[in-house]
Design a protein around this nucleic acid. Structure first.
Lengths: 150, 150
DNA sequence: CTGATATTGTAGCGAAGGCTACATTTTGCG
DNA sequence: CGCAAAATGTAGCCTTCGCTACAATATCAG
């Protein structure tokens, strides 16, 4: 499958490693995305709601929230709901844009809306910036407000 | 984000559950894909080669192989290499086709070849049949010899 | 204000997928 | 042949992400 350019197995191994990383990050990203949505929509993000929306037990959600806190993406105090840190909000914004872009691309390719939303949930975590750029070009979109310019 | 069609949170939870399943299956699928490639290319799939190509320790690879066997996808005898069962081969064929299709789509969208290969590694596990069908249509491909309906 | 209910938090379990370290076989070369 | 190197296999150990069961805390009705 690989042509021998440099070291055949090495490049492949790196791709796999990268995919494993993305897989690990995916769970946390899902929580960040959801918390942002809950905060924006209802003004508060309670563990029970998070658990129900994401389809896990509340205990599982609480553990994930603990991990978000450890990673500096969220903070919360007992019985007071969950909030995103600056870093968490920045990440949420990025994830939200990426999610929309992936969904829009799938729709543009003729994927039925429900399927697009379904597949995007899994795909989005594995789309690199380079691919996103290509998607934007394909969709005829202005190259975007990267987190660069003030 | 969800419009209220049925139960807002339920559909979302189902999507997440589905994505979690795909994530879990992804590891095994990677091994099956790789084993098929090794068998086709070099005639044998040895644990050490598998480990190197996939970028994990040989112990990890051996454990994964054990799981493949438990799932009825592969068989192997000590020091004799790994082989795919009928089921494993069927899966491998499906995965191979899916991988190629995803890569080709990314290329068609203008994603650079290396990036396409990289992202496909993660994306492929989350693309449903409905999306694949849309991809084929977009690429102007004949709808293909599915593994048939009874 | 008090007690039932719902929410939140905690503890402990299992499976999966990593790892390193150690044991065992094969292989192959001198 | 016989022994060292390489490959293979095994045994812990850790972390994550699920779960259920139980404990503690808030909330709200009466």
């Amino acid at each position: 499958m690989d042509s021998a350019e440099d070291s055949p197995a090495t490049a492949e191994a790196a791709r796999h490693a990268s995919a494993r990383e993305a897989r690990a990050a995916a769970v946390l990203e899902d929580y960040v995305e959801l918390i942002e949505d809950l905060l924006a929509t209802t003004g508060e993000a309670r563990p029970t709601d998070i658990a129900r929306r994401i389809g896990v037990s509340h205990a599982t959600a609480i553990k994930a929230i603990a991990r978000l806190k450890r990673e500096g993406l969220a903070h919360s105090r007992p019985y007071r709901g969950v909030f995103l840190t600056e870093a968490g909000q920045a990440l949420a914004a990025k994830l939200r844009a990426r999610h929309r872009l992936v969904v829009d691309l799938l729709l543009a390719l003729g994927v039925p809306p429900e399927v697009a939303e379904h597949d995007a949930e899994g795909i989005e975590h594995h789309v690199s910036e380079a691919s996103l750029e290509a998607f934007r070009r394909f969709l005829g979109r202005p190259t975007p407000p990267g987190p660069a310019q003030p």
